[in-house]
Design a protein around this nucleic acid. Structure first.
Lengths: 178, 178
DNA sequence: CTAAGCATGTAAGGTGTTACATGATTGG
DNA sequence: CCAATCATGTAACACCTTACATGCTTAG
């Protein structure tokens, strides 16, 4: 996955929406783009320092209820962000462990295979419930930004629906194999 | 992505189908599971040595048209493979660069967003053509193994179809936004 | 007062990629 | 004969995760 640091752009993008601390960034990732993007503190903080050193962001100590380091995009940072947004999406290697296991499915019993698929199905059914809540919130908003959030959420919903259907289909096929 | 080495299990799984050299493994990955799994030489060879050192595989020099190191699963290796197959699938963090860019879509022009989606659509349309060829080959086979290959391929087909539909939908929505 | 959440980091270590390096063989 | 493919590796390096470490604040 290396080559270019994607975390860097995720951070620049989130700071483009508004100033944030490292903690805020992590929260925003988890609460809004968590279903297609993930970050952890151990990566966010060092990169924030690097972005500051290269002049892409600016740090400001803010003392409120609790003091924190709030970062803002600089002009240079904004240019970097726009440059990345306009560049073509880099296809990174896919690694789907479920499919890898399924590919070797003939080595284990059909009951185990079906259990595996049932777990996957359940996982996406639960996701759909969460998506539904988010959907209601987004639909209440009328900003331009929320439209794009909706597009990404629609992707998640379509993906989960597709996977649920595929799990059903595959479980039936496995049962017929016996 | 770290934690447990997935490459290790991919290799064990492929060796479970039959003895292979490092080169063979790379070829097999590219030609059969490439659409959901990827490996590179710089990772395969060192791990093969590690698997041999821990007694999970056995190396044999084979001199044919060109000499090569062919690896075979040991009993211990087979147990390790079965153990992994029976363990629950580990959810690894998702990172979808296209969605990340789309999420920040309000920062760039709608033309750029549409171009991005059109490229993604094209990518999956091309994939579907490739899948169709593979599908014909698999359907000719009657082994148990080929059934599982078919299941994974069906996933790929469903995924591409879903993404194409979502791209269309999203492109239309973006056009309506203008 | 105590658990949960706010807030920031460091260190260790494995994972995986890319680039480099080399040489044999086969088909056109 | 020369390009493509077979065949095996190493080195450098960035990426990313996990675990550790610390301290403050607020709500129940």
């Amino acid at each position: 996955m290396p080559k270019t640091n994607k975390t860097k752009y995720a951070i620049l993008g989130l700071l483009g929406v508004g100033p944030k601390s490292g903690y805020d960034i992590k929260k925003t990732v988890d609460n809004s783009i968590g279903f297609f993007w993930s970050e952890n503190y151990g990566h966010i903080y060092p990169i924030l320092l690097r972005l500051e050193a290269t002049g892409l962001v600016k740090k400001k100590m803010v003392t409120g209820r609790q003091s924190k380091n709030v970062y803002t995009l600089t002009r240079k940072g904004k240019e970097e962000l726009i440059g990345w947004l306009n560049a073509p999406v880099e296809k990174q290697p896919i690694r789907n462990e479920l499919l890898l296991k399924l590919f070797f499915g003939s080595k284990i019993g059909s009951r185990e295979v079906i259990e595996m698929l049932a777990a996957e199905k359940k996982y996406h059914e639960d996701l759909l419930i969460i998506y539904d809540d988010i959907l209601k919130n987004i639909k209440g908003m009328k900003s331009n930004k929320s439209r794009f959030w909706l597009f990404t959420l629609n992707f998640g919903i379509s993906r989960s629906q597709m996977i649920i259907a595929w799990c059903d289909e595959t479980m039936h096929a496995v049962k017929r194999m016996k």
